[in-house]
């Protein structure tokens, strides 16, 4: 185990800003991409359904 306490863990030996700034931005990017992906998928389905309803009219 590397850490004596949670405070020590978050402080990262004085490099907290840099370590958490890196890991945090990566998390943000991944979550953002997954969100966009889901939106793209839903929009595609909706568009296809709309086109289909026009077809059948």
């Amino acid at each position: 185990m590397n850490w004596e306490s949670w405070e020590a863990f978050w402080a990262m030996g004085g490099y907290g800003l840099y370590v958490w700034g890196s890991f945090g931005m990566t998390l943000l990017c991944v979550v953002g991409e997954l969100w966009l992906l889901r939106r793209h998928r839903l929009q595609t389905w909706q568009r296809l359904k709309r086109l289909k309803s026009w077809d059948s009219q």
């Binding site: 490099y15 840099y18 370590v19 890196s22």
Partner: peptide, 23 residues
């Protein structure tokens, strides 16, 4: 964060490597 030891030159700051190099 829990297994890899502290780096003797860069302290805990080196842990960025685990994201930086794979990315």
């Amino acid at each position: 964060f829990f297994v890899a030891p502290t780096d003797f030159q860069q302290g805990e700051g080196y842990r960025i490597i685990f994201i930086h190099v794979p990315a």
